[in-house]
Each structure stands twice: as structure tokens, then as C-alpha cells.
């Protein structure tokens, strides 16, 4: 029973909110166009392939993080687990076990993910703590195994499969990313598993009362995230041809940033792979563009920080408009 003027006002506010929520897409488009105009290096085909490879790692990590965040949890072990998976895979490759190195790499990642899940469910520690524990163990293990050295390996087939190969002009790393986005997007949006993940993320207590298997879901999600970190570790070492203990250090923060930039709140129950893709592209393109423009890494970090808070504030403003 709202009056016509109130209705008009409401529509105007909704429109402003729409513009505000699409702000991130606009920002993204402006960034791409500007970089392409300023820098010939940015728009070179080689660089596009390069971006594809770079966002592969961030994108896979971020889709894992998206699941974890929708569940209402957090995973701080992402970078360390990816690193140690890469290290162990490299060691396996140089030991000459061939293709068997691949399941080994995945198993290392999945194992750490399982550890996270078990700590959260059976030791009843918050995910922040559980994954911090995994972070330290994975980091320590990687350093011990490498003794601080770079692990070299010769496995061209492996490198082609995970990073350097190309199909129809796309790098194989990028193909992996597309596969993971597809798999995760399907799981989340189209399956019962996804429906229950949203339900549990919305309220773990309520979901439990409704008879959903909350604990099992936690273990599965963290294990899945871990396995994806195994994949990330392999792409990482395949890209550069060697493995280091700190190969993916800090990846968790970029992944959280990408999820948040996509507009997903940390409370759980909300988010989608599509949103995360936008966040990933924004960070990927920005990192690449700034590097090409010779902005040093430290300044890049500062810009990223400012970007995150700006997007979050705009998002909150838009949400308030929608609510009223």
C-alpha cells in the first residue's frame, strides 16, 4: 500500500544500487581499456596468455576459497599447502616415478585439507585456528624437504600438461582453470550438494536441526579445497620448471581478496563462482597491468589493499540502499 511517489523513490534507489553493484564490472572494463591503450605490451597476445596462466593459480585457489567462505569458514593454509604439494610433486618427479607424481601431489593437498576438516569437526577448533595449524605444518614440511633450495626437475610432459602446453591458443593452465570453474560452478549452483552447502553456510545450527550432515560437509569441503591446492601446486611448478618452499606464499590472501572483491561477504551462506571469477579477473589484470607499467610489487600490494576496502564500502552502501 505504498504511495506512487514512494514507489518511484524506491525504484530510483534500486537503480542507484544496481549501478553501485555493477561498479566492480565497470571498474574492471575501465581498467582493461585503459591498460590496453597505454601499453602495447599489455595487449600483446603473449601477455594475454601470460595473464591466463597467472590467473589460473589465483582462480583455482579462489574457487576453493569461495566454497570455504560460503560454508562460513576460512582457509589460511592455501598458499602453504599449494607450495608443499608442488615441492613433493617435484621431488617425486625427480625421483623418476613419472605420472604417479600427479596423484601424489593431489593426495598431499587433499591430506592437508582432510586434516583441516578433522581438526574443525573432531577437535572443535575454529577453522581460523585449524588452518593456521596446517599452514605451519605445511610450511615447515616444505622447508625441511627443500632445505631452502630450489628443487629442479625435468618432466616436459608434466609441464605441458599443467601449464606450458596450449590448446587452441589457450595455455593448459588456463584450461585447468576453466575446468575447475566449470566443476565448482556446477557443484555449487546445480547440485543438491551445493544447495546443502548454502543451507549449512546460512546457519550451521539450523541446518543441523533440519537433518543436514553439517560435519560431513565441513570435512568434504576442506578436503576438496585441499585437493585443489594440490592441483595449484602442480600448475605452479609446471609453469616455472622448479619448486620452492615459498612458491605460493600468501596465496590465501589474494584468494580471499578475490572472493571479497566479487562481492561475497565473509559470514557464509552467500556467494557464487561467477562473482569470484570477476574478482579474480580484476586482481589478475590489475597485477599484470601494474607490473607491465613498472609499478613495483610493494606499490601493487598497497593498491590492492585500497581496492578491497573501496569495493567493500561501495557494496555495503549498495546493500543499504536495497534494504531501505
Amino acid at each position: 500500500m505504498t504511495s506512487p511517489t514512494a514507489e518511484l523513490e524506491r525504484r530510483a534507489r534500486l537503480r542507484r544500487a544496481m549501478i553501485a553493484t555493477s561498479g566492480i564490472y565497470i571498474a574492471f572494463a575501465v581498467l582493461v581499456v585503459a591498460l590496453a591503450m597505454i601499453s602495447p605490451a599489455f595487449r600483446s597476445p603473449d601477455n594475454l596468455v601470460n595473464i591466463g596462466r597467472q590467473v589460473a593459480i589465483l582462480g583455482i585457489a579462489s574457487s576453493a576459497m569461495t566454497f570455504v567462505i560460503i560454508l562460513g569458514e576460512i582457509d589460511l593454509s592455501v598458499g602453504a599447502v599449494a607450495s608443499v604439494s608442488g615441492v613433493i610433486t617435484a621431488l617425486a618427479l625427480s625421483a623418476g616415478i613419472g605420472p604417479l607424481a600427479i596423484p601424489v601431489g593431489l593426495a598431499v593437498g587433499a591430506g592437508f585439507g582432510l586434516l583441516n576438516g578433522l581438526l574443525i569437526v573432531y577437535v572443535a577448533v575454529p577453522s581460523f585456528i585449524a588452518t593456521l595449524v596446517s599452514f605451519f605444518i605445511a610450511q615447515g614440511l616444505a622447508l625441511t624437504l627443500t632445505t631452502g633450495q630450489t628443487i629442479l626437475f625435468a618432466a616436459d610432459g608434466f609441464r605441458l600438461l599443467f601449464a606450458t602446453g596450449s590448446v587452441l591458443g589457450f595455455s593448459s593452465a588456463f584450461i585447468w582453470l576453466v575446468l575447475v570453474f566449470g566443476l565448482m560452478g556446477w557443484l555449487l549452483a546445480r547440485t543438491r550438494f551445493g544447495a546443502h552447502l548454502y543451507a549449512i553456510g546460512g546457519s550451521q545450527d539450523n541446518a543441523r536441526m533440519l537433518g543436514l550432515a553439517v560435519d560431513r560437509m565441513k570435512i568434504v569441503i576442506f578436503t576438496l579445497a585441499g585437493a585443489l591446492m594440490g592441483l595449484v601446486g602442480m600448475i605452479l611448478i609446471a609453469r616455472i620448471g622448479n619448486a620452492r618452499a615459498d612458491g605460493a606464499i600468501g596465496l590465501e590472501f589474494d584468494a580471499i581478496a578475490a572472493v571479497v572483491l566479487g562481492g561475497t561477504a565473509l559470514g557464509g551462506g552467500y556467494g557464487s563462482i561467477l562473482r569470484t571469477i570477476v574478482g579474480v579477473m580484476l586482481i589478475g589484470v590489475m597485477n599484470n597491468g601494474l607490473a607491465i607499467l613498472n609499478v613495483d610489487f610493494n606499490t601493487q600490494q598497497i593498491i590492492k589493499g585500497v581496492l578491497v576496502i573501496a569495493v567493500v564500502l561501495v557494496d555495503r552502501w549498495a546493500r543499504n540502499i536495497k534494504m531501505n
Binding site: T191, R192, A199, G202, S203, M209, L210, L212, G269
Partner: peptide, 23 residues
């Protein structure tokens, strides 16, 4: 239950059919 157990982040259909989603 006495306490509301609705899932606030979902729509009505997903609440009514939770755990019994047709596939």
C-alpha cells in the same frame, strides 16, 4: 521447533524442500 530454523539466506522453495530437493 520452538526456535525458528528457517534458512534466511535461501528462498521459500529451498526451505520447504530442504534435504528433499528433487534431482
Amino acid at each position: 521447533f520452538q526456535e525458528l530454523t528457517v534458512l534466511e539466506n535461501r528462498d521459500v522453495a529451498h526451505n520447504v524442500m530442504v534435504g528433499r530437493e528433487p534431482v
